[in-house]
Design a protein around this nucleic acid. Structure first.
Lengths: 184, 184
DNA sequence: CTAGAATCGGGACGGGCATCCCGCTTTGCC
DNA sequence: GGCAAAGCGGGATGCCCGTCCCGATTCTAG
């Protein structure tokens, strides 16, 4: 439809502008901002938004998908270069920081199901990597064995939702998750 | 208006029934359930609901206020009978368990501001008690000094949102919060 | 420059929901 | 038993929002 090559130049411009504005607005105020408002700030009509992105969900997918892909790539990088424990905690922190900087991403991460379903696979990929790293970290003894993936997800979500400095809560959670805590 | 003594008997009955049903429904499905649905399940008209509780918020206040009052009383009890560290962790756990059993309460606890306001309206300053217990527990050296009240709130909220067993995540968070973690 | 097609703007539409209203029913006192 | 008055039911109203549509506008190939 809006092919990057064949589309009219004004259409390409508008599409990019909508994406840019929507990314800012979702990051600042979350996904509940009306489409109408995004159109207004982008200086286009609502019709223009919904032609490029037939559904609000499509818009979200286009924006958040890119962020998730970045994080997934980082996860792979970490898995390759670091030991399991280090890699797991690094991904945990990166995920949290990404969410803290992007209100929309944080909302999404809070709704377990939606993150998995988002887009084709962007969300599922990241979730899969996180699960693998958790398992590996537990295997290697860096993370206590009694926590589940869903516990980790909940903790990530709690950390991202913070407005205040992240360091204290990250320290608390990292200490709690590490194996030395469970053994006193 | 709907005075417990002077009201007509059918009015009292209906009011009680609405409260009962709403408490169940909010606990099971959260605050987003339409008022219409509550009326239907209670076997009354929507008008009856909104006469007794002019606003959906009023209904929520009536229900959650009672829970908050219970927890506040428990907090006072704990503060009187236990040492600060024990009392703090006990309240933490009680709060989490209450939220895990009540979807509506969990939603509310996630929205920092609203819980404060609702507690105030219901005359149950649970948040204040939690803050006091945290401060006392930190003073006594039971809780690491670098965590803030808002960190605690976030962790509580994350724990309550769980559907799976609470024990693992409670153990993780308790270990992370305790002072021995911060000192290695 | 021009024509025709792609794109635009923003109003129309529909669905969901909280709240209000009013004709009818039930209650409780005499 | 009868009659105000209180209470009831649920349809009407208003608001918010996402999506669709179409006459007006802008682009670009020739």
């Amino acid at each position: 439809m809006t092919d990057e090559r064949t589309a009219r130049s004004d259409a390409r411009r508008n599409r990019a502008r909508v994406l840019e504005v929507a990314a800012e607005v979702f990051a600042a105020e979350g996904f509940s901002v009306p489409v109408h408002e995004i159109a207004r700030r982008a200086g286009v009509g609502t019709g223009t938004v919904s032609r490029h992105f037939p559904t609000k969900e499509d818009l979200l997918t286009a924006i958040v998908g890119a962020r998730l892909a970045d994080l997934t790539a980082e996860a792979d990088e970490l898995a390759r270069r670091e030991d399991p424990g280090t890699a797991f905690f690094a991904l945990f922190t990166a995920f949290v920081r990404a969410g803290a900087a992007d209100c929309g991403l944080a909302e999404l991460a809070g709704a377990d199901r939606r993150l998995d379903e988002l887009g084709e696979r962007a969300g599922a990929d990241l979730c899969g990597r996180l699960q693998e790293l958790l398992a590996a970290a537990q295997e290697s003894g860096a993370v206590r064995p009694d926590v589940g993936y869903s516990d980790v997800r909940a903790l990530i979500s709690a950390c991202m939702a913070r407005k205040d400095p992240l360091e204290p809560i990250l320290a608390v959670v990292a200490d709690g998750l590490s194996a030395r805590s469970s053994t006193r």
